[in-house]
């Protein structure tokens, strides 16, 4: 019973680790930064509405750049 529960908890933890972190930890960090920035800028008006998508786009491009294969690789 305890062993089965432990196995289920490990599987549950493994699923969320894979889902949230996996092989792209930079996207998890990016998400935390975007959430933090949203709270920091929530009184900044239109600036927040422009900065949030721009920052998200920058994180996406940086992550894709990191994932590219080297020429000849």
């Amino acid at each position: 019973m305890t062993a089965a529960l432990g196995k289920a908890l490990r599987a549950f933890g493994h699923f969320w680790w894979d889902f949230l972190i996996g092989d792209t930890p930079e996207l998890a960090v990016a998400t935390l930064v975007i959430v933090g920035l949203a709270y920091a800028l929530h009184r900044a008006g239109v600036a927040a509405a422009i900065l949030l998508p721009l920052l998200t786009a920058a994180f996406l491009l940086a992550s894709a750049w990191r994932g590219r294969r080297a020429p000849g690789g």
């Binding site: 792209t24 996207l27 998890a28 998400t31 935390l32 998200t56 992550s63 590219r68």
Partner: peptide
């Protein structure tokens, strides 16, 4: 929910771009 969607969406987009 937005954070979860961001993690999921950015992951899908990264793969799509690559």
């Amino acid at each position: 929910v937005g954070a979860l969607l961001l993690v999921l969406g950015l992951g899908w987009l990264r793969k799509a771009i690559l």
